[in-house]
């Protein structure tokens, strides 16, 4: 029996700066995870549809456009309606500290800003997975 952490990395909204997303895709795959990259301009609906079909454990959103206060809660809400809020919703980008805190209060996971090491994200996901999957 072989179990793999499956992660969806998506870029919602209109900004096209996908370097960060691609770096994290590569880093997570190198850490032994199966990473689905769904590309740019994803709507929250598309992201949740993909997450369900791919049966991922984790969704990581990369947002640099400033729309994080809208998009993160929307994806979380859709996951709840689909009864899949067992999925960890995390991400990164240009997100002010106070916004990170209020998003975390809503039930969104840790968010990673500029300068974060990829190893921090990997450790965070692995730790979460081990705690939440018997």
């Amino acid at each position: 029996m072989e179990r793999k952490i499956r992660v969806l990395i998506a870029k919602p909204g209109l900004d096209g700066h996908d370097r960060g997303a691609k770096v994290i895709v590569r880093a997570l795959a190198d850490a032994g995870m199966e990473v689905i990259y769904s590309g740019l301009h994803q709507t929250p609906e598309k992201i949740v549809k993909t997450a369900i079909e791919e049966d991922v454990n984790v969704i990581g959103l990369s947002i640099l456009s400033g729309a994080h206060m809208t998009i993160f809660p929307k994806v979380l809400e859709l996951l709840k309606t689909e009864n899949r809020n067992d999925i960890l919703l995390t991400g990164g980008g240009i997100i002010p500290e106070e916004d990170m805190e209020s998003l975390m209060k809503l039930g969104i996971g840790k968010l990673f800003g500029p300068g974060s090491k990829t190893s921090e994200t990997i450790d965070y996901i692995e730790k979460w997975y081990n705690e939440n999957n018997k």
């Binding site: 997570l28 795959a29 190198d30 850490a31 990473v35 990259y37 769904s38 590309g39 549809k49 791919e54």
Partner: peptide, 28 residues
């Protein structure tokens, strides 16, 4: 990857038509 066991699954990236149809199911 035979070395790390991880994988980058990027085929969905090019399959945007799939979102137009309720009954299309993709699995990477």
């Amino acid at each position: 990857s035979p070395f790390t066991g991880g994988a980058m699954l990027g085929d969905r990236l090019r399959m945007n038509n799939s979102y137009d149809y309720e009954n299309v199911f993709i699995r990477s």
